[in-house]
Structure formats: structure tokens, C-alpha cells
Design a protein around this nucleic acid. Structure first.
Lengths: 197, 197, 197, 197
DNA sequence: AATGAATGAGGGTTCATTCAT
DNA sequence: TATGAATGAACCCTCATTCAT
């Protein structure tokens, strides 16, 4: 109003702000779920003013979607590291079990993955995102386990889901054993077929 | 202070109303998730007045919990029928794949199961419920697949989760093949160990 | 519904129930004020079913009014005892101070009196009740203090109000002294006139 | 989820709005009491939208407290004018009676004072506010009536309370006479002692 | 005569979104 | 460009009152 009431304006860095917001959405979703994520919960976590949320993302849905998209990117990065670990591992089954155990232990990304899955069940627009995550996982597993990738992926998902749900850590040996059994070669008379979805 | 309006009171049947409400909660959760389930969404679905929700369930949490508990019962009933089918089946692997396909196709109970899992990740009070569901599944699978139950359960969960998430139906043959491979006997040098959680 | 579902019906004693309800209203008003007194708060305190409140008193206002009326009766009874004490006392001023101190200490009836006063300010229908209380007090004080009754009554009310408001007990000596000063005879050139309102 | 309606936003003036709200709370409390004061009753009286109430005052308690605090300020201002009048008056007793009569006639501030008293009886957090009001009054009366302040204050409060409760205006002459009698000098053998509370 | 089931208005509060600045 | 003020719908819950039993 008066001239000396100059607005405090932070140095502009739109990309940094977008990133801060998407990171905050991810936190919020992991903490309280999509259904309880609000503009305010995101703005607070990001340390940004409320108005910044709607300024960078027109609606809350857009904001949430941006968060999920970012989560997918993070998942991609994880996948890359998994691929490297599996490629370098003497025993891929043991390595995968280790990966699964770590993944379930660091709840945030895993929770996000399941939150995304649950959301994709209800919201068609999120399907591609969920699809991409599963596709990426499959690729990595195919490199390590060949045509058993589908089975290994299903076991992996199921085991992590159980661990997160019950709070009981993944049983590495059991999981490794299952994977080993699944991928045992030599007597494979029925090759697994599974069309890319 | 003035609620003198004439109001229609329908014939009473408390048990029927409770049931209608829990059924409506289940619908609502499957449709929009726990986080978006409201008194109104439940009352509307149940065809009951708003006040009926809080009359029968003091808080929304109670209402949701009642719904999840009812869902668990339904799941138990499903499990019983699965057990019978698996026991009677010539090839349990094929039968299980059929069951999984049906389960994923009739989205409601499956969605509920994952919604419960996701909720249990955040809310400790729901853990026992989620636990019970997994335990029941394990029992049934143990009867049919012995010590491979854990692996089969994980594959089952993972496959159904994938199907629901991506919208692509379960590939019965692939799943049956995986299960068969998992449970193949004769060359089992490494027995699966998995302590009850 | 079925024949064996016989209603539990307490022995009927309408008057006892009315009394229990009015006593409960008084408790509730003293505890939480008129504005927060509800059917439920009264029924619970009375140990009676919710329906009993509206059965015996058509509306909440009626219930509250019954409570206030009962409070006025209790006040009348207190007044009688005060009159006796003042009549028997060697020094009415000291006795009055003692009475005031006790009255302020046992907060319930005093709070009720002020709650009634406050309500009467807003609700004309309660005026007669408040009026009657003040009139009764005046009569008692007139018997003990003659034409100074108005002044003594005002001091009494003011002192008790202060004590209740601040939580500081009535200062007996100060009050006795004031009353003594007020009622000192001998040099009374200006008799107090105060028409009955 | 969808609040896309076009909404009119009035020019802003936060301080004016805060003031309007506190003024409205005061009105509401005087009209219907604290117990019946609601966000909606305040918003309507202030001519502001419902959301403004919680925007400026997080909870209803905060809003009410702000109103009571404002009322205390108004009371302080009144006190200042009373002090001036009493200091300038030839006969303080007569002047005080005039003040009391005016105070009781303009019901709003007086009602507020008693509403505050009644609330303070139940809510400890309001005690300081009520205390301050009484303390301020005492100071003013001490300047005019010396050590009789306590007695004069009690009489004043009692007389105004009676007037408001019964709807009968304060009897100026009677009150002036009482005050005169209380403060009569010359034969004061028993000085009034009253520790500051 | 007595009661608890029933209902919807309304209360406190949150929040998505709009918009003046 | 950026932000916090602004708004009202909707949320959870309470409750006066009505009414079937």
C-alpha cells in the first residue's frame, strides 16, 4: 500500500521451486496418503508460501500428479542401480533379496509405489505412470532373470507389499530361495510367455 | 433450536442399517479410497440419511474400521471357497490362476485388500486386520501348496496387484506356469524356510 | 419385536423423575452454563434415558426453566436459614459476612444465581424468577438491617460476584466492616428510599 | 474439490476486518451470551463471510477471547472517563450514581461485564481478564473514595446487576445515599482493610 | 407411559481455489 | 512474477426434536 511496504520476494528460480514442491508432495503422500494431501501440507513441507502451490500447479490434482511423476523418476533411478547391482552380483537371487529387503526397509519409496498403484486402480490417468514403473522393473529383471522376469517381479512386489503391510521385514533367505527356485534352469519345459501389457 | 419440520422416519431395523452402512463404506473405499470416504459418501450409497452414519458409528474412523472389518470377513469367506476349489482341483496351479483372474476381474474385493494394505502401512491399528488377511491366505495356500505357500502368496499378490494397477487382466497361463514351476517337486534340494511372522 | 424382548421399564414415579431431571439441569447449568446444557447432558446426569427429558419437558427451554425454577426454590430455602441465622446472631454484620463467605465458597448455588441473572438480562420470561430471588433476599435483609437492606444486598451481591469471578475468597472482616458502616445508626439524616421494583 | 464459482472479493483491510469481527463478537455475546455465540452469528453481524472468522481467528475460542479482550479495553476507556468525572464532581457520590445509572441503561457494556464474570467462574483462562476489570475499577474508586473503594465497588456492581437483571433502572438517589453513607468521614473508627487480591 | 431410534439443521473447522496487490 | 488475503463448499460431529414401538 505504502511505498515502504516492499514485498519480500525470494530470488526467482522457478525450476527449484517446482522441484521443492514435487519433493514435498512426495513426502506428504508417503506420510498421509494422496487422499489427505493438501495444498497446505505441501507448501509447509516445501517451506514455500501457500500461493506458490497454485501458482506452479493449477490444481491440487496437478500437484499430486507431478509428485507421482517425480516419484516415478526416482523409481527409475533406483532401477538403474538395481540393474547394476544385479549385473555385478555373483548370485542374482541373493542380490535381489537384498534389494527387496532394503527397499521395504526404507519405506518412503515403496509406500509411494503402492500409493501410486492404489491410485492408478481408481484413476485411469495414472495408469500410464504405474505401467511405466512396472515396465521398467520388468526390463531390469529380464536382464537378470530372463523370461522369468514376470514371476520374479510378482514375487518381489508381493513380498515387499507383505513386509510393508505387516511391518515384518522381508525374509531375505526365503525370498532368495524362491527366486532361485523360479529361475532354476535345466528342466524348463514350459517357457513363460507373457506379452508386454 | 427449531427442528420442528416434519420428518419421515423409515421403519427401523438396526441390524439392516448397520449392514447397509458397512456395505456402503466398502463400496466407497473401493471407489474413492479411504482418504476420500466421507459420512456423506457413505450415507448416500447406503440410501440412508446423514445422521444415520454417526448414530450407528460414533466417528468416521469407526465407520471405516467397520467397513474394513466387514471386508475382512468377506475375504475370509472367499478364502474358504478358494480352499475348497483348490482341494478339489486336479491341478491346483491352474485353479489358482483361475482364482486370481476372477479375483482381479471383480475389482471391488481386491481393491479393498490393497486399500487395506496401504492404510495399514500408515495406521498401526489396521495392522492386525491386514495381518489376518495375509495369514488366512497363507493357510489356504499351505493346504494346497505346502511349504511353497509364501512364494505362491507373493506371486499371487504381485500378479493381482499388477493386473489391477495396469488394467490388464491376469495372464492365467503365465501365472499357472509360474506356480507350477514354484511347486515342482522331485528336485527340491533347498527347502523353503519362512518363519511365521 | 419378539415376545421375549420385553422392555425394561422402571417403576413409574413421575414426580421423582421430574425431580431428578430438574436436579440434573441445575448441575449442568452450574457446570457448563445454560448455553451448553443439552438434553443429553441432563439425561446422563440424571441417570435417565434421553427420551425422559422430552417426555417430561416438551422443549429444552422448558427443561432449563424448570431447573432455574427449582434453583429459585433452593435459594428460598437458603434464605430461610439465613434469616434464622441473622435473627439469632449477636452481630448481624459478622454473621452476614460469614454467610456470604460460605455462599461464595459453595460455588454451585451462587453460580446458578448469577447464571440466572445473566439469563434474565436476555430473556424477559426469566425476569420474574430473578426478581423473586432478589425480592426474597431483600425481605430477609430488611428483617435484619431495616431500611439499609438495599445497600446491604447490593454489597453482598457485589462481593460474592467478585469472589466467584476472581477465585479469591470473600474477605469476611472487610465485608462485615462495610456492612457495619452501612448500618450504623444515630446520624442517619437521609433515610434510604427504594421502591419495590 | 470443485470451488470454481466466481466469488466476490471485497477490498482488503485486515485491521478493519479484525475490528469488525471483534465488534461483532461483542454484540453477539451481549445479545445471546458466550454459549450461543457462533462463527456464523459473528460473521453475519460483522457483514463478513463465514471464512473470515476462522481466517483471522483460528478457533472460536480465540474469537471470543478477542471479543472479551476488546470489551476489556472499552471498559478501560469507560473507566478513564469515570475517573475524570469523579475527580471533577462536586459530589462524587451523586456522580457515581449517575454513572451507574447510565452504565446500566446502556446495557451492552454492562452485560458484557457480567457475561465475562460468569464465564470467568467456569474458565480459568478468563480470570485474568475479569481480574483486570475489577482491578481497574478499584483504582478509579480508590482515587475518588479512598479506602472505601472495595465497598463502593461492591455496591456499584450489585446495584447494576440488580438493575440489569430486573429491568428496573438504577435508583440514583438511593445509590448516592448509600455511597455517601459508606464514605462518610469523621467518625471512622474502623478503617477498612482489604488486601489487594 | 416410556424410550431409544431416527433425522437434518447447524456448529466448528479445513481447504481448494480465486484474486488483488 | 508471486503471494497471502479471501471465500464458501464441504467436512466431521452434536443435538433438539419427533415418533414407532
Amino acid at each position: 500500500m505504502s511505498a515502504d511496504q516492499r514485498r519480500v520476494q525470494r530470488p526467482r528460480d522457478p525450476q527449484a521451486r517446482r522441484d521443492a514442491l514435487t519433493a514435498a508432495v512426495i513426502e506428504s503422500i508417503a506420510d498421509v496418503g494422496i487422499g489427505r494431501t493438501t495444498h497446505r501440507s505441501v507448501a509447509t513441507r516445501a517451506g514455500l508460501p501457500l500461493g506458490a502451490t497454485t501458482y506452479y500447479f493449477p490444481t491440487l490434482d496437478d500437484l499430486v500428479e507431478a509428485g507421482l511423476r517425480r516419484a516415478a523418476e526416482i523409481f527409475d533411478r533406483d532401477l538403474t542401480s538395481w540393474a547394476e547391482r544385479l549385473a555385478a552380483a555373483a548370485d542374482p537371487a541373493t542380490e535381489l533379496a537384498a534389494i527387496a529387503a532394503e527397499y521395504a526397509a526404507d519405506a518412503v519409496p515403496a509406500r509411494l509405489a503402492y500409493e501410486l498403484s492404489a491410485a492408478a486402480m481408481r484413476d485411469e490417468r495414472l495408469r500410464p505412470l504405474a505401467h511405466r514403473r512396472l515396465g521398467g522393473l520388468r526390463e531390469v529383471l529380464e536382464a537378470a532373470f530372463g523370461r522369468c522376469a514376470y514371476a520374479v517381479g510378482a514375487v518381489l512386489d508381493g513380498a515387499v507389499l507383505q513386509a510393508l503391510t505387516t511391518g515384518v521385514p522381508v525374509d531375505r533367505e526365503a525370498l532368495a530361495s524362491v527366486v532361485r527356485r523360479l529361475t532354476r534352469t535345466g528342466d524348463d519345459r514350459e517357457p513363460l510367455r507373457r506379452d508386454r501389457a
